[in-house]
Design a protein around this nucleic acid. Structure first.
Lengths: 169, 169
DNA sequence: GCCGAATTGTTTGATAGTCAAACAGTTTGA
DNA sequence: TCAAACTGTTTGACTATCAAACAATTCGGC
């Protein structure tokens, strides 16, 4: 799958299926929720990543921009927690966005340890450019779902994502 | 989230919420299917990875073992395609499993280019050890779902994972 | 049969993403 | 006042991944 785009097969019939290519047997994995989850997530992420790459952004950068837009003055640690990455990983991420003139690090007088993150004018413009691309992405991946099914899916996923309440047994 | 386990906050009230810590605002992301998907997948994968680590395996190794078990004589390229990784990445994966004496590379007379992958006795024993752990993992992540809901979730996910039929517009 | 094209496994970089640990500056609470 | 905690940062290591090139082997059209 990942290589199919990289390798341009020239032979007419060898591209996908040799006369009778037996598909790989999944039976041990196919019963697992995590298996379906992984495949769906892979496809969605792929679509998301290429859609954002067209705009010149990585998925992480888009997440950061959208979170800063909705949380002006967010600190780098808070951003990292929200993105699920270490705060030391936030540094180069913001470095890059700052070099692109999309994000500012503002020193706040009330607490000189933290950097309050803000979007610049160009950053807000970038978000406005991102939103419609995001909507098209969403329509694309939910193309085979009715609105009700889409809502059901999100509800069930959120239920799965809930942390187990410290019952580790 | 990832850091919450690494950092042991000792201060009683600073652990989760300073008196009124405003939770990070998600509004732009929370409407996206991919967002729910990512969080659920992260939690499931975490559970899976730690469960398998207890057995001494990485997720990739478990996938390889289960696929070889269900497809005796699989080639490395086919395995890579099934796992969604490049065939060059399969090499060290199988190297490791072979060093553990769980997998054999068999040269087939019919095609001396390919390696037919097979489980050893120890490999089959490993699979037998893995299966119940897999079942417990599955029960854990589906704990908040009824059997019907679990089935619905898998069906919807499989529908999302379907490749878009070459309509790239 | 012959020979160019394709396939397979492999090696060798290169890249990206992540964390852990240590640090200095700053704030906080007893 | 001062030890403990928090913040951003740097550095180093590690993992996972791919791309490209290679030799050995097979295949298909002529």
């Amino acid at each position: 799958m990942a290589t199919s785009t990289a390798h341009a097969r020239t032979r007419p019939d060898a591209a996908g299926d040799r006369t009778t290519r037996p598909p790989v047997n999944d039976r041990r994995l196919a019963v697992l929720l995590g298996y379906s989850l992984r495949r769906a997530q892979l496809r969605v992420f792929q679509d998301f990543a290429t859609a954002m790459a067209d705009l010149g952004f990585t998925p992480g950068q888009v997440g950061a921009l959208l979170l800063i837009e909705s949380n002006r003055g967010l600190s780098q640690s808070e951003l990292g927690a929200a993105l699920g990455i270490d705060r030391s990983s936030v540094v180069p991420l913001i470095d890059r966005l700052q070099a692109m003139k999309l994000v500012r690090r503002v020193v706040r007088a009330s607490d000189r340890r933290t950097n309050a993150l803000e979007l610049t004018e160009a950053g807000e413009a970038a978000v406005r450019r991102i939103l419609p691309v995001l909507e098209r992405h969403e329509r694309r991946i939910a193309a085979r779902l009715s609105p009700a099914e889409r809502q059901t899916l999100m509800d069930l996923l959120d239920r799965v994502a809930v942390e187990q309440d410290a019952k580790e047994k």
